[in-house]
Design a binder for these strands. Structure first.
Lengths: 213, 213, 213, 213
DNA sequence: TTGTAATCGAGACGGTACGTCCAGTCTTTAG
DNA sequence: CTAAAGACTGGACGTACCGTCTCGATTACAA
């Protein structure tokens, strides 16, 4: 996560824990106010009441700092049991959309993804800190649906994994695209339509013969 | 598209048309070599054999220039008739994925989207120059499928439009997410799985009772 | 004075004589408003209602244009016969000082002199257009004084010329220095003190034994 | 002298003293090589092995930097006791002329004076850094001459001050005008003629009745 | 208690890019 | 052939941030 292990040696003054919190909060605030490209390290330092040096002691640069600052936002996503797969799916779509309404999330997510197209280390960091952690939602949803009998239990482990990845890309991708690129609202109506499409597709995909009808 | 209308008056030296081409080409080349964040206006000017002033006379800034430079790439997408809706869909998915493999496209697309989260004018520009123009692929595909009898003709105009938007967000979003965020290959296997999901979902959505089974 | 002789050919649209006047006036106005370093050719052209091209057709550059524009100011200096050498001298000192009060003169004179330290052609131009033409005042004053019997007629031609040069440098130099460098007023009192010093010095210089007493 | 007081607070990295020296030396070198108008801040920075930022941190602009850079040259002027007022005067004239032969001095002096005609702050800076400091030469010369009995001791303090100012303007003005405007050499012969004129004038001015003879 | 060592704020440092401005040239249409 | 308009190349301007560095001053743990 950070540049240098915070507990490298033992002696010396320990790093301030408050500083960490203040810096990450300041980063999110700066993102809201300024957006990605106008955000500067100096500004974050000033907001956090901290010296620029302190930032660079803990993070390698703007990208890394922002990834850490926004990663925590994505952990807020939850999957309360709403009784059916359709309800669960629709709920998580709306939750995710609400998250993307927050300026710090929308601007930061796209920006770090853009940066990551040229930076392998950053890409890895994003996947570990943000992407992979949210796959749990898909897995958890499927497990519940299987327990309810809405979905068959998969025999082939790797096929199951591939399907989970596919669903994750479809859900996350569609919501992001609708919200950030098309710039249209992800409201309940859209979420319902999307869920119908998704679950219908899943059902079709799990049938042996690909006869659409 | 440009900052100042090029044909404002009549007198005076007209703007060089070659310069425009050279600049846009140089921009794409610079994107490939340097990526978004390292790309500089000076560098583009030098590559294009043009003065920096000339860039700023025609585009307001880096963002606007890059949008115009990459917009043309997306016009390459085509929808040759492959005989069935499934084949058509799979074809366009693979085409789009191939486009996103090109460094200038992947880095530029995400970067301008990121910038657009804070800039209404830029967002509009992106939609006009890139997004809306590609919806034609969805509409064309549906028209053909209806002619073939694979899809029913829609009575409700606005519902049809909403469905087209949904499909567009799902397709574009899923491919982008798979390619840029998950950083996994969009190969034929994935395209087939995705198409099955999509068409199955469409079929389910067009059926009256939403009974997932 | 100008780049190209104005009556070079015969055919085509003749050069506007008004333009010349307008340009030189605009140059002086711009000098007053902006000073030397902020004065731009574009601005002069705009003020004169003339294209930049026209400026460059007639003058080689900023320096040459400004020299011509201010040279005319120095031709206003006159030497009306005030009855005595002392009165004549004091009169010309005050006239010169009044000229240096005008912003276009003070700023332009020093600026072109500064430029001329690196530019032989400009130095020559300044001497021809400004400096040498004012020596007439010294020569005329001496002639009158000799006619009045206030000064002896010089036998040695070259010594007479050297003395005239010396006086010119002393008068012009002292007034310029007082006005522009020391930034103190050249009023009647100062002019009187200076004249006493100058004429006393001249008298001493024309005596054989240099015994200061 | 500088933009920001160098000893503003106490904290933070102190300014490099070497940088100051290197910058001023580089400025003088650039003046010699390029002259005033071709001198650029970037070039000075490069010569001094310093970032452009560092220049702007310490000086507000080209003018201020050059004033400081050349001011030191004028401090080289001295007034060794040559035994008589005439010898002392002639000596200082030749010293000053030698200084004005140096390209960095001639070009810089006129240029900053020219700029100062529009800039009150710059005028003040020049007077403090350059002009006023050289009046010491006049005062010292007079003191010595009075001790030698060559000049009477002045009763009226303010008249004495006015006379000193007059002499200063005459000497500095004449030498500058001869050297830079007339562009003639200030050699020993001229210096002797000038000294005779000056001292003769002084003697005349100190006599009560203005009867030249 | 006294090192010792890593921390802290502050701010100067060398760089790099920005977006603007101007000099001087070139290319058009109009007269 | 000249005028006016304005686009062109080239390069300096002064500003802003970057990420590094050098300070003097704190803090903690270890001897």
């Amino acid at each position: 996560m950070r540049r240098t292990p915070p507990c490298a040696g033992r002696k010396g003054r320990p790093r301030s824990a408050e500083a960490d919190t203040a810096i990450l909060e300041a980063t999110r605030a700066a993102l809201v106010d300024l957006g990605w490209s106008k955000l500067t390290m100096s500004d974050v330092a000033a907001r956090a009441g901290v010296a620029k040096t302190t930032l660079y002691r803990r993070w390698a640069g703007k990208n890394e700092l922002v990834v850490d600052a926004v990663a925590i936002l994505f952990d807020e996503l939850e999957l309360p049991d709403r009784g059916s797969l359709a309800e669960d799916a629709q709920g998580v779509v709306l939750q995710f959309a609400a998250l993307l309404e927050r300026p710090e999330a929308r601007t930061a997510l796209m920006a770090v993804v853009a940066e990551s197209t040229r930076d392998e280390a950053l890409r890895t960091r994003i996947r570990h800190a943000i992407v992979d952690r949210q796959k749990r939602l898909v897995l958890e949803g499927r497990r519940r649906a299987q327990e309810r009998g809405e979905l068959p239990r998969e025999a082939d482990e790797s096929a199951a994994s591939r399907t989970a990845d596919l669903i994750f890309d479809v859900v996350a991708g569609a919501v992001v695209h609708r919200s950030l690129v098309s710039a249209e609202p992800v409201d309940e109506e859209w979420a319902r339509s999307f869920t119908v499409l998704l679950l219908g597709g899943l059902a079709a995909a799990s049938r042996p013969a690909p006869s659409a009808g």
